[in-house]
Each structure stands twice: as structure tokens, then as C-alpha cells.
Amino acid sequence: MSAAWWLVALVGVATIAIKGAGPVLLGGKPLPPRIGRIIGLLAPALLAALVAISTFGGDRALVLDERAAGVGAAAVAVALKAPPLLVVVVAAVVTAATRTLV
């Protein structure tokens, strides 16, 4: 089996197990209030981290490139209550334009 197929098999099994663990072991039972409160803050913490890394993340480095312009424009679109599709399109168009022009 080639490395590519090993990657498919190992990452697939690991991901399916990680995703399934919580719902299979704990499904349907309410969490204690403190744990519930902590887990409820996982969304803002992780989503903000994903925004930061996918905007400024490079190969083991922080980089400031055209993506920042696109995400900045997306932030303006979000502030103006634009629908999500428009937000994503604005980000892509501004990034592509900056890349072409600058």
C-alpha cells in the first residue's frame, strides 16, 4: 500500500473515532453546568483561532499577505450585516484583486 493510501486509512479511522467518541459515550445526557458553560465558549475560542491562523498563518511563520486585505473587507461586510455568501465572495474578490494589482 502506498503512503497516500496509508494516509487515507489512518487519518480516516482516527477522525471517525475522534468525532464519534463524545456522542457515543455521552449521548443524550446533559453536561454538568460548569462543563456546559466551558464547552459553550469553545465555539468563539476555536472559530477566532481558525480565523487568525487561516488569515496570518504560513509554514511555521506569521505572514501578512493579500489574504489580510480580503478578510478585512469581509469584516466590513459582516459589520454591514451582509449575508454569508456575499462575505465569502467579497473576501475572495478583494484578495484576488489585491494579488493582481499589487
Partner: peptide, 9 residues
């Protein structure tokens, strides 16, 4: 840049 924008939304 579509990806960070999606997470931002």
C-alpha cells in the same frame, strides 16, 4: 481567503 471569511461569518 474564502476560508477565514467563512469562519469569521
Amino acid at each position: 481567503a474564502a476560508f477565514p471569511a467563512l469562519f469569521l461569518a
